[in-house]
Design a protein around this nucleic acid. Structure first.
Lengths: 186, 186
DNA sequence: TACCGTAGCCAACGAGCGTTGGCAAACAAC
DNA sequence: GTTGTTTGCCAACGCTCGTTGGCTACGGTA
């Protein structure tokens, strides 16, 4: 459909640099000039291809959680599977850390984050919890525990949270997530 | 010991304005000029009394969690008590929200947050968990769940997390925290 | 070869930032 | 009443930011 442009490589380089900068510095401190320097091009190119800083952020924060289909596996393992998946997703690259960082300081970032979780985590929970109308609430509980661990481990870097192995985290958080998804409402 | 200065009212006004700005805007977007405007004085006064922006932030983020003595109450209620206490503390003012916001984008903020939790949450957990050498780890797990809920509810404002009543949150998170503190290590 | 859209860089703009130094008024000490 | 200290404001500094407009050079097309 869209043809290949000569500038595609540049666009991709900008996007990659932007993701890294937003992730490590947050929205305000991630400057267009620094992103352009990382990408090896002129700051004005960023403006040409993405309009302005907000547009660049919007393009850089398209996120896929790649959640597994929970309905296809044993009901009693979904907590551990979900936690494992998120930990892997979080360690694979720093896009999620970036989204978290930006979501905290930037209104557009927070909305993006709401959308990602509503659209990608919501449906997954709807299939496994006993009361489908409570699914959003249960998804929010799961998000609170998973985002909280990511916050403690990857952003705030609380030493005990950093030192724990992923297995250990799964062993502790798995049952929590499992309960939030499948237990009867308290 | 220190005598009362005529400028104490000004100092206090600056501090209050700084706390609000840091809380709502984060470290970078909270400008000294805006804080001074809120406090009704000149920006240069902020520099005179607090040295620079970092000094102002350090002074504005002295935080007391006011945690209760967990040893004094029934062991099986400490999870609910802790969650209740944090929710109240969080809703009372926006200092904690601010600390969270700044801790995410600012290195000094993250360190301040590490210190607050290590110094104030750590000791409380040490008395109630079965293996005192694992106390920091358990405290980090508790922090991950409580900070995660604060993140979802007060910062990102995920709609389902905002809509839940505090009782409901306590009913869900209480057992989680209880388990992190008192259950045998998995 | 002549042409035209695209890709890229350079230089500059206006604005906002943290921060500084000096000056005027209010107060305190003698 | 004079002197020294505190409190406050004003004006400016150097810097970085996002953003703009114009210029050169390249690549495909006729």
């Amino acid at each position: 459909m869209t043809t290949v442009r000569r500038s595609d490589a540049t666009r991709a380089a900008i996007l990659e640099a932007a993701r890294e900068r937003f992730a490590s510095d947050g929205y305000e401190r991630a400057t267009i000039r620094a992103i352009a320097r990382d990408a090896g091009i002129d700051p004005s190119m960023v403006m040409r291809y993405y309009g302005n800083k907000e547009g660049l952020f919007a393009a850089a924060s398209e996120i896929e959680l790649d959640l597994p289909e929970l309905g296809l596996l044993p009901a009693r393992h979904i907590g551990a599977v979900l936690v494992t998946h998120f930990l892997e997703r979080w360690e694979r690259d720093d896009v999620l850390t970036g989204m978290l960082r930006v979501g905290v300081t930037n209104e557009a970032g927070a909305e993006r984050m709401q959308a990602v979780f509503a659209r990608q985590l919501g449906p997954v929970t709807r299939g496994v919890c006993p009361d489908p109308d409570q699914a959003p609430r249960r998804a929010a509980l799961v998000a609170s525990q998973i985002l909280g661990m990511a916050l403690a481990r990857y952003v705030l870097r609380l030493p005990p949270a950093v030192e724990m192995s992923t297995d250990e985290i799964v062993a502790w958080l798995g049952p929590t997530v499992q309960r939030y998804l499948t237990a009867e409402a308290p």
